[in-house]
């Protein structure tokens, strides 16, 4: 695979002095799905906006398929499709007209056969004559995708495509992304849901406070991030752990009333069944059980600390 997008030391400093991007360097392979994971205000949208030409960069360079986004903006922009985070659409226009407008704006000649195929793929064909204001939120998001794909781009940016949408629509979006990947489109999506990145991405980048903390293959990263803790409250406190339970994964709280079992959700066996069997064999009565997963925020803190050491 060859890189379709090369970002070198990209910096963005706003007028007030706020550093939204602190030297981001990233290479994206042709045909892959990269998920950029990060909390609100991490710089995800700024990064996308700068690549697409909505914001200007303070320094650094970006190349799309070997073309500079500033010098060859006509070439690079025609290769990129953008689905923004907000539903920004002309309310009084029909679906077909608004998608046709996008295609023309990107300099492509009218091609109703392609647009029909696209609208059918996105289940919008039946709604082509409807005005945007008559559509549901989910349909509007599909229109945004149709607009972004109307000029047949090779790179598609999806800025938080499932923020604030219900579970069903989220799954629908994931299916659409999978179908697009099958057609050879490179997809870069931003999200703050770990499970979203897990479901659809090939690689995951973690961005926080304008810095790209890491970019890794999904499987490797999920293994790192997939640690979970099982808290077991005992009916009666114990002074020490029974011998069968003395492993490095189990810790006893100071007052002896709670056991904490750390396990890997990605592992073939989590060891929970054996743990419960061992507890029963040791004659310990349980009062309550609960599981906890590190929040994304915890993971970021961990990653930042790891980077600084």
């Amino acid at each position: 695979m060859t890189a379709i997008l090369e970002i070198n030391d990209l910096k963005k400093v706003y007028e007030g002095g706020f550093e939204a991007l602190k030297g981001v360097t990233l290479s994206i392979e042709r045909g892959e799905i990269l998920a950029l994971l990060g909390p609100n205000g991490a710089g995800k949208t700024t990064l996308i906006s700068t690549i697409c030409g909505i914001s200007t960069s303070s320094s650094g360079s970006v190349f799309v398929d070997g073309h500079c986004i500033e010098k060859d903006f006509r070439v690079t922009r025609s290769k990129i499709g953008l689905v923004p985070q907000e539903i920004n659409l002309e309310p009084f226009e029909t679906v077909m007209n608004t998608v046709r407008f996008s295609r023309g704006l990107f300099g492509k000649p009218r091609n109703d056969a392609y647009l029909e195929k696209l609208l059918r793929q996105l289940s919008l064909w039946e709604k082509r004559g409807n005005r945007i204001m008559e559509l549901s939120g989910g349909m509007k998001r599909r229109v945004l995708i149709a607009k972004a794909l109307s000029h047949e781009p090779s790179v598609l940016f999806l800025d938080e495509p499932t923020a604030g949408v219900d579970v069903e629509l989220r799954k629908d979006m994931w299916n659409i992304v999978a179908e697009l990947k099958a057609t050879g489109v490179t997809i870069i999506l931003t999200t703050h849901y770990i499970e979203e990145a897990e479901a659809i991405a090939d690689r995951i980048g973690v961005i926080s406070k304008g810095e790209l903390l890491l970019v890794e293959e999904k499987s490797a990263l999920m293994k790192r991030l997939g640690q979970k803790q099982l808290q077991i409250e005992l009916q009666e406190p114990v002074t020490a752990l029974p011998e069968a339970l003395q492993t490095e994964n189990i810790a006893l709280s100071g007052d002896g009333s709670t056991l904490t079992y750390t396990y890997d959700t990605q592992a073939k066996r989590t060891g929970i069944t054996k743990l419960l069997a061992d507890l029963a064999a040791a004659g310990l009565q349980l009062r309550d059980l609960q599981t906890e997963q590190s929040s994304l925020e915890d993971i970021f803190v961990g990653l930042v600390q790891e980077k600084s050491t």
């Binding site: 990129i80 953008l82 002309e90 704006l105 300099g107």
Partner: peptide
């Protein structure tokens, strides 16, 4: 919708 205009060639 100005985003589209700014990101167009």
């Amino acid at each position: 919708t100005i985003y589209e205009l700014l990101s167009a060639p």
